[in-house]
Amino acid sequence: MAPPPALERREAVAALLAGRGDALVVTGLGSPTWDVAATSESPLNFYLWGAMGGAAMVGLGLALAQPSRRVIVITGDGELLMGLGSLATIAAARPANLAIAVLDNEHYGETGMQASHTACGVDLAGMAAAAGFPSTLTLTSASQLSHWLPVLQSGSGPVLGVIKVAATQPPLTVPARDGTYIKNRFREALLGPKAVL
C-alpha cells in the first residue's frame, strides 16, 4: 500500500498556530523556524537558529516557569533526534501545559536533504509514548490535523504529535536572528518592560 500523501509544511504550521491564543511558541532550528516566522510571527515566539537538540528542553523550562500558559514547541525530526533523551526528561517531569509538534519530513532539510532516521522507520511518537508521554499521535492528513488541534492547544500534557510533511523547501522567511533581541523581545511581551531592564 502506498503511503498517504504528506501534508505541506507551511499549511500544516498555519493550521497548528491559527488558534494559538496566548500560547508561547518555541521553534527548532531550520525550517520550523522559517515556517513559524512565515505563518504566525509574534514576539511570543522564541526562534532558535542553533542549539540543535535543545528546543524541547527550552520548552520544558518555559512550561515549568509559566504553568498557566500553553507552551508549544514546533520542531523537526532531525532536531528532536539530536535530543532524544529530552523525551525521557520531559515525560518524567510531566508538564501538563507542554505540547510538542514535530514536522517530520524524514530529511535534514538544511544540509542537503539527507534522509533522517525517521525515513528508516524510527517512530518518534512511539518513542515519546514509551517514555511516558500521556498523549502521542502520528498525523498524516489535514483532517487528522484538524482533529488533533484541541489536543495541541489544551490536551493534558506533555503532548507530542508527529506531523508527516512533504520534503519541500518553501520560500525562506527569516525572522530576527540576533538571539539577545529575540530573548528580550519575548520577555518584554510576556513579563512586561521591567523584564529587560
Binding site: 535543545g54 523550562g61 533523551g85 518524567a92
Partner: peptide, 26 residues
Amino acid sequence: ITTVALTTEEEGVAMSAGAWLGGVRA
C-alpha cells in the same frame, strides 16, 4: 524549587534558558 533530573547535561543548559524566558531563575 522545581527540581528536574536530566538524561544529559546539555538538556539543563536549554532548560535554564526556557526558565529565564518564563521569568524564573534556574
